[in-house]
Amino acid sequence: MKSLKIIVLAKQVPDTRNVGKDAMKADGTVNRAALPAIFNPEDLNALELALRIKDQLPETTITLLTMGPGRAADIIREGFFRGADDGILLSDRAFAGSDTLATSYALAQAIRKMGKFDLIIAGRQAIDGDTAQVGPQVAEKLKLPQITYVEEIVEISKSRIVAKRRLERGVETVAANLPLVLTANGTAPDCRSRNARLLMKYKHAKTVSEIQSANEDYLHLYNDRPYLNITEWSVNEIDHDPAQLGLNGSPTKVKKIENVVLQAKDSRIIPANDEGIEELMKELIDSHTIG
């Protein structure tokens, strides 16, 4: 057997990197509608690491697993367009309010249901929370080793992996037997772009909920082409302890959210002309701030 079963964990996130002026409402709260929902960037690095393994071992299958609301099916389609073989959307109100631990529990329970696998790859962290906790916590829930911050898979076989990790002040190369959990660092290669043939093939891929509201003319597609059906699991499809799900299963609680209010200082406006800047530089030199 020269192939692996890989699960890629991915999250749809608001694009917090491009927060424009309209991202905040007049009352100071976040205007979520103004932030586009995107494929979490480091999860795309994770997908690329998986696709590179598939390039090497073509029988490899890649299944994308995501948890989120119905519209998170977008990132499964995005995964199909770039070369993923399958996708599962885990979606239920019971998961609402999950912190990283409750999220990891739900994902781990879904992974148990998915059956045998060789490798799980997640992005290092999601840009809406920057916690980097879900990858290691999924590994712990599944009692698997973890290799975090991976930027390159140096060697891969059915049973063993050698990976290069990016640390704060250097790199470390480690070897371990499969199965295990990897997290992909932003320094890993960028994800390949959409493939035109896959885009045509999968553009109508939908979850059951989406099919229900789809144009009737298309409904026959989902019988004729089973690969267009995106698997959607509610909480009932996974074995679970209700006490570990959602808000109740989250040890951390948000006590308070404050909008950022700037304590305005008494700023001095310096004209951007020669006189203004010379005056400023003199002042800084005289006060021994510089020089």
């Binding site: 990197r17 809406d128 609680k253 959210i257 909008n259 950022v260």
Partner: peptide, 11 residues
Amino acid sequence: FGGNIIATIIN
């Protein structure tokens, strides 16, 4: 949330 809010978290 991208730095637009400050959260106080408790356990």
